[in-house]
Design a binder for these strands. Structure first.
Lengths: 221, 221, 221, 221
DNA sequence: GATGAATGAGCCTTCATTCAT
DNA sequence: TATGAATGAAGGCTCATTCAT
């Protein structure tokens, strides 16, 4: 955004708030909301203690802004997934989760999701916003694929909402664990070793089932 | 201090620790570990600031004790309950998750799980404790069932750890969401409407798979 | 002291305060005034928290009583030194310091002296008492010996008070250091290795002087 | 906060640390380490509770800095001053003790020495610091002079460490007594009347010995 | 706009002392 | 006498926030 009066220099001025938000994002993800000190944010943004208060009400305000700005951006990227895919629904599901992992799960944003869970009750309006802008659409996205699969006879019929939650759970879990227990020295033996492989395996299991295929019963048919 | 109800002087050493732990559990679940102040706990337990320190080392000690008395104790009971099970592994798995839900997931304890995820990185020692006392044993429990199923030819062979994570994810997710988004007025449309039914459906899906069993159809095609 | 009514049992009753004082003495010497907790004293005396308050006003009162009881007793022992000694004054001085070391310097009482210095300003009346009952008489004792030496032509004439302080300083120093720095792990390289030898050497030095005897000049006379 | 004297707003970053250290020194000497509260220091320095923490890590850090700025600095100066001395060792020793008295013994710093003895066992880390930074160098300083005297044939040979302790004892004693008994109204009759004269006399005695030089007399008898 | 010195409320923990039993 | 559960004032330290410059 170029200011008509001052020209390009205006750009730098407007960049200040974003630099602060970016620094805040990194720190929030890395250390959590409480452990992130205002001064850390300021320093990481290359300004001094008082400056963030010129642009934001307080720490809570910064947190809200960070979530709003970042998540929306990330989520818009994920929307691209929906582009008219032609193949079978299982493949489409795999593709969706794959992109999800690539664009969000494996990025700083995953830390933000975890943080959102952690702080949800402390920021009700923000939580509401996050729910409306991210969670509901995301569930819609996956739900559409499931419905597509059912409609095309690829998937078994059933409660779509529950299926969505089930399919989504491993991703959520990994995003949360990777930013909680997995960061503590003695607790790393969990999933985190190869998240991508885990997600693939989890999807296979959810698609094909843990039990031996009932095809052994086929002779009786 | 005279108790307004009984009119008798209160000197109940034996009851105190449990009253304190109970107050602590409620507050921890409601406000998180860090946001729960020692004085809050004391007041909620009907005593003054110093009293909790007569029974517990410090705040972390109280937290550990709360976890031990609720989650750890429940898992130990589950352990015993499932030990002598004779039926098929799918049924055993269902039983395990069912008890898990009844004894932990649907109780205040679930809030502790969520709390632990939320604050793990800020309190490494507690995280380590929780990992050793809760997470590892719980994963062991489910892992043993999966291995049993594979050994008995009931389950398909594969990476057990990943299977455990997948099977566990819906439970984790529900415990977390129930104590974050679900507590915020506008965000209750999620799973939480019938968690038990969801868990059952999720298990079915994970056991049987979302896809139509291809091998059965093959002959008919 | 036997109570006329109850007989010997009264004896045990009266012993209680002394048991408390004895426990307090040990702890004060070992850990200092502040670091000694009332409960420690009670426990060491084999009673419970509240009991010391049946016999003493408060902690300060116990401290004062400990100093009064212990020091007076110790000092009375030291008075025996004065018994008509016939030998030379240097020997008498050595004897005096030797007993001082044996009866006080190397016992718990030395810790009390150190404590008295440390807490002097916090207990003015006690300090006054200690000064009148212990310090002044002790200085008198040493001063008398010095005066005796001068009168008999054994010691050089001079300011007796200063001589007393000088002769006394090593003893004081060792009592203090032994109960301060010498108790801290990394600071033990000091005197404490052989206090008795040090005191003997110090006395020799003070009697004979550090400088080479002027007798080398004799030829010039 | 408006300064009542200057009427100007107080923002004097450069002066703050020294004001705080000065306030701390006074309070430490007056009340001891433990009894001096951080807020007392702050108030005495004309600032509020949190301000000292802008300049110092914690209470121990303030104490160390006070010791460095006063005692350690003075000893370093003494070191330099005495390095190039050419005269006889007895004179050098007198010079050293004289400076010691002028720069430390007669100043507020002496109170720190007394404090350190009094509270050594309660604050091991500070004690270690003080031992390394003050005691060891000071003993080295005096020890070097003694060794010089012996090497030049001026002093009698003997245990240097013991000699150092003996020579040092009067100074230590005076510093301690001046900040304990001497501060209590009825106990001032001691040394303190003319410390400088006492130290001089004590040194004379320690150099020349209390006893009449026997070797000189021998021929006359 | 920016700075950064200063504030002061708040938290965990300790412990001398009290008092109903 | 004796107990010991309970109290509550205090103290070291942190950090979000303010505001004169």
């Amino acid at each position: 955004m170029v200011d008509p009066h001052t020209g390009r220099w205006q750009r730098k001025k407007d960049a200040r708030p974003n630099e602060i938000l970016d620094a805040a994002l990194t720190l929030f993800v890395e250390k959590g909301y409480n452990a992130t000190k205002m001064e850390d944010i300021a320093r990481a943004a290359g300004v001094t203690k008082g400056t963030p208060y010129l642009y934001f009400e307080n720490k809570a305000d910064i947190f809200k802004e960070v979530v709003r700005e970042t998540i929306v951006a990330r989520f818009n990227e994920m929307q691209l997934l929906l582009a008219g895919f032609e193949g079978c629904s299982a493949e489409l599901l795999g593709l969706a989760l794959d992109r999800w992992w690539q664009d969000i799960g494996s990025t700083r944003s995953a830390g933000l999701c975890k943080l959102m869970m952690a702080e949800a009750t402390n920021f009700p309006e923000l939580t509401q916003f996050y729910y409306d802008e991210v969670i509901r659409p995301a569930r819609q996205l996956i739900g559409d694929i499931v419905r597509r699969g059912i409609a095309r006879g690829e998937f078994r019929d059933g409660n779509v909402e529950y299926a969505v939650d089930t399919l989504t759970a491993p991703m959520l879990m990994i995003m949360i664990l990777d930013h909680s227990f997995a960061l503590v020295p003695g607790c790393c033996e969990t999933i985190s070793r190869d998240p991508h492989a885990f997600l693939k395996t989890a999807l296979d299991l959810m698609l094909g089932g843990l039990q031996q295929p009932v095809s052994v019963k086929a002779p009786h048919d």
